[in-house]
Simulated assay, not measured.
Amino acid sequence: MDDDAEFKKLRWRCRRGMRELDQLLGRWLEAAWRQSPSAERAVFLRLLDCEDDTLWRWFLGHEVAADVEIDALIQRIRALPV
């Protein structure tokens, strides 16, 4: 699959039905996906597999992801400029 087709599919997967999550995930996708190493991309794909309510609790800081790689990525996403 070419990069543009994969990117479009990922953009669609970042649409969660909650505007705030859409913005957080989409912002990282636009800002970091193309230059990220494959390991970080794999963590992002695992993050996209998580349930929306869980993601929201993690992003708000009400809970911490048990997976340290996912938690580290969440912190980087939260730190991105708006």
Rank of each mutant, 00 (worst) to 15 (best):
L10K: 05
L10W: 05
R11N: 07
R11S: 13
R11I: 00
W12I: 11
W12F: 12
W12T: 13
R13Y: 08
R13L: 15
R13Q: 15
C14N: 00
R15Q: 15
R16G: 04
R16V: 04
R16L: 06
G17V: 08
G17L: 07
M18D: 02
M18P: 00
R19Y: 08
R19C: 04
R19E: 08
R19I: 14
E20I: 08
E20S: 12
L21K: 04
L21N: 02
D22F: 06
D22A: 07
D22P: 05
Q23L: 13
Q23T: 12
Q23Y: 13
Q23N: 12
L24C: 10
L25N: 02
L25C: 08
G26I: 08
R27G: 05
R27M: 09
L29Q: 08
L29M: 09
E30R: 12
E30K: 12
E30L: 11
A31G: 01
A32M: 12
A32C: 15
A32K: 15
W33L: 07
W33R: 03
W33F: 06
R34D: 10
Q35P: 03
Q35F: 09
Q35M: 11
S36T: 11
S36L: 05
P37K: 09
P37R: 11
P37I: 09
A39S: 11
A39M: 03
E40L: 12
E40S: 10
E40Q: 15
E40D: 14
E40I: 08
R41H: 01
R41F: 02
A42G: 10
A42S: 14
A42K: 12
A42Y: 00
V43C: 07
V43Y: 01
V43D: 01
F44I: 09
F44W: 03
L45G: 00
L45P: 01
L45C: 10
R46S: 13
L48W: 03
L48Y: 06
L48Q: 04
D49T: 07
D49Q: 13
C50Q: 10
C50I: 07
C50T: 07
E51Q: 14
E51T: 01
E51K: 14
D52E: 13
D52F: 00
L55T: 02
L55H: 02
L55R: 03
W56P: 00
W56T: 01
R57K: 14
R57D: 12
W58P: 02
W58I: 06
F59M: 10
L60Q: 14
L60F: 02
G61P: 04
E63N: 09
V64Y: 01
V64W: 01
A65V: 08
A65N: 14
